[in-house]
Design a protein around this nucleic acid. Structure first.
Lengths: 150, 150
DNA sequence: GTTTTATTATTAATATGTTAATGATTAATA
DNA sequence: TATTAATCATTAACATATTAATAATAAAAC
């Protein structure tokens, strides 16, 4: 009889709820949101990325990305460039101010990351990644079918 | 040099992104959302809970809960009852329809849960919980200070 | 007992998530 | 090459998250 609080969505949500505020303190100092930073971070060491690529890298849904990019554009951190070869594509390009924001924030982000990884052993960190991946392994067709049938 | 995609927020988000659709298929069959189910699930085997209690159990922010409860009330799954002893409190009570929804969904929810836990060994499941808790352990005052300073 | 402080639920304002649909464009195929 | 199918970004409609503020009530302190 698995208890509600021990379900996978709950333990992952609880973990995220505990982790994000640590990052959010930094984000607020720069007046951007979690999601907006994700986009800027994805553009690190990139000349440009299409909206679609950013969605894949950041895990942000495309429809949400439209507004997120609007606000980043309004803040002057990125620009939009319509591709000439394939006019369906829109390249997202970090501006000078965007690059400066990246340079400013990235070291601190990595510091926070280190502070988390150092709470566990390297073996535990590896285990965490391995177990999570195992939980997310693709299901076989029959498993999906039975999963949808319940 | 920790890579973006290996950061703690990203691996947890990626995991959630992979997990939730499995549940969501069931939720959609009953025309409710993730959050709405969380509330109903919290009320399982409970006569009533205050809004605050539900927020704590479900991890849903109080301001969000107002709307979520509004919609659950409109669907006829819960009722609101103002407490007499302490008139600040509002008791959330599952209706008959709400109880039936719980009875209907809970076994399937537990099936899904089992399908996930069975993807890993019991030891791995324990490890996952232990490592996540370790990552979320309360910081000491000095650690918080240095964390905010970066 | 009245002023102060805490607590509970809620509202407000803004940002994002979710699902489905759309317009513009390109690729694939008959 | 005319048609059909696929792709990309975006819009639309609704639900939720985040932070700060508020109204009502209760508990604490004076």
């Amino acid at each position: 009889m698995p208890k509600f609080l021990d379900s996978l969505p709950m333990i992952l949500s609880r973990s995220l709820d505990g982790i994000m505020p640590v990052y959010r303190t930094l984000f607020q100092e720069h007046a951007i949101t979690d999601q907006q930073w994700r986009v800027m971070r994805a553009l690190w060491e990139q000349k440009h990325l299409t909206s679609r690529q950013i969605a894949e890298i950041t895990l942000l849904p495309s429809p949400s990305l439209v507004g997120i990019l609007d606000r980043l554009e309004k803040k002057g951190f990125v620009g939009r460039l319509r591709s000439i070869e394939d006019r369906r594509l829109v390249y997202i390009v970090p501006t000078q101010a965007g690059r400066e924001l990246q340079e400013l924030m990235l070291p601190k982000i990595e510091q926070i990351h280190d502070s988390f990884t150092q709470k566990v052993t390297p073996e535990e960190w590896g285990e965490l990644n391995r177990i999570l991946e195992k939980l997310n392994e693709y299901k076989t067709t029959s498993e999906i079918a039975s999963g949808n049938r319940v």
